[in-house]
Computed example of a mutant assay.
Amino acid sequence: MRRSVAIAGVALADCGRVDTATPYTLHAQAARRALADAGLDRSVVDGLASAGLGTLAPIEVAEYLGLRPRWVDSTAVGGATWEVMTAHAVDAIAAGRANAVLLVYGSTARADIRAGRRTSDLSYGTRGPLQFEAPYGHTLIAKYAMAARRHMHAYGTTLEQLAAVAVQARANAAHNPEAMFRDPVTVEDVLSGPMIADPFTKLHCCIRSDGGCAVLLAAEEYGPDLAKPPVWILGTGEYASHTTMSEWEDFTVSPAAVSGRLAFERAGLTPADMDFAQVYDAFTYMTLVTLEDLGFCAKGEGGPYVEQGTLPVNTDGGGLSACHPGMRGLFLLVEAARQLRAEAPGRQVPDARLGVVSGTGGWFCSSGTVVLGRER
């Protein structure tokens, strides 16, 4: 049994500065809005995917939402989680193990830190393999910074080219009323900011926000009942690389090189067919190297490519300007669906018919890529 699968509904919960909500209420808010966006009742949902909340994430969230799913997924691979979950859910729906799967996320990361309810997660603890790096002060940001420095050394990538990523993200956010930061920035603003981890100054790094979102995936037979045009999932790919930096074979190659190739092959399409890309951008270097590895330009040419800015990328402003409550990959799918449904006024890509979403987890530890289209 093989059925086509579509994004039936998408929605954001309240995002940005949300001081009064809990992660559970953001989950519920996003879920209600996504179902309303699809024009479907929650009774159709027989699958749930959730991560990042509680010890029994999908079960606790399902109970809070009043759902009793027959299929669940709690895969947690960092920022690539939601693209990987999408691949799993598509396979489950296509095989008949579920009919409608809700992917839902909510986090009050910003509010929790400001209120002293938790500390920053930049060190990611000292258990397991990480115990061999933590004593040297090797934070998450430092790992990305080291990879960026290697790309700069190998290919001549410049700080100005990396800064162009942040400038473009902010320019996109200026047209997104839901973005947290919308004031324009310049390359000089990025370069002159406070240093966080060489070569990353503050504006090279993602913002910290609260927020949530949800995506409802449904089998093809729901198509005629949907309130909005379905967005079809044409191909998916996933790949796991490393966790210890010494086990990463090449700092200039991200796991999107594999997940992207698989997704495009399964869709029967190429990067040249894409009208836009939504990629995880916790740091400016992530955008540059992911676009390289997805095949939009050759290896080493990411610097000039992002400087030219010809491809619409992270049209909502991304994690650098719009929102970043953690594990932001689900927000990429929301924005991609809105673009393909022509629901992004002010930032709409003209006649967008095909797009790619690629999430990255950890410190280039994992990747999930999804190719989407307006037609099957």
Rank of each mutant, 00 (worst) to 15 (best):
L130M: 10
L130K: 14
Q131W: 09
F132M: 08
F132E: 08
E133A: 10
E133S: 10
A134Y: 05
P135M: 06
P135V: 07
P135Q: 04
Y136H: 14
Y136T: 11
G137E: 02
G137V: 02
T139E: 03
T139F: 02
L140Q: 13
A142S: 12
A142Q: 11
K143G: 11
Y144C: 08
A145L: 08
A145D: 03
M146N: 05
M146V: 05
A147Q: 13
A147R: 13
A147F: 11
A148V: 05
R149A: 15
R150A: 14
R150S: 05
H151A: 15
M152T: 06
H153I: 07
H153L: 10
A154R: 15
A154M: 09
G156V: 07
G156E: 05
T158N: 07
T158Y: 07
L159D: 14
Q161K: 07
L162R: 07
L162V: 10
A164I: 04
V165N: 07
A166W: 04
A166E: 05
A169L: 04
A169M: 14
A169G: 13
N172A: 13
N172S: 13
A174K: 13
A174T: 12
A174R: 15
H175L: 07
P177D: 15
A179D: 13
A179Q: 12
M180C: 09
F181E: 06
F181T: 02
F181Q: 03
F181K: 01
F181P: 00
D183P: 06
V185M: 15
T186W: 06
T186Q: 05
E188W: 00
D189A: 03
D189W: 06
V190M: 09
V190I: 11
V190A: 10
S192T: 14
S192A: 15
G193R: 02
G193P: 04
P194G: 06
M195P: 01
D198F: 11
D198C: 05
D198W: 14
P199A: 06
P199K: 03
T201L: 00
K202C: 02
L203A: 09
H204T: 01
C205M: 04
C205S: 12
C205W: 03
C205K: 01
I207D: 06
S209D: 05
G211M: 09
G212F: 02
G212L: 02
A214N: 12
L217G: 05
L217E: 10
A218W: 03
A218Y: 00
A218S: 02
A218L: 04
A218K: 00
A218P: 00
A219F: 00
E221H: 11
G223W: 01
G223Y: 00
D225A: 12
L226R: 01
L226K: 00
A227F: 06
A227N: 06
K228G: 01
P229W: 07
P230T: 12
P230E: 13
T236P: 08
T236D: 09
E238D: 13
Y239V: 00
Y239M: 02
Y239W: 12
A240W: 12
S241D: 15
H242N: 08
T243C: 01
T244M: 03
M245E: 12
E247M: 03
E249V: 04
E249S: 10
D250V: 11
F251R: 04
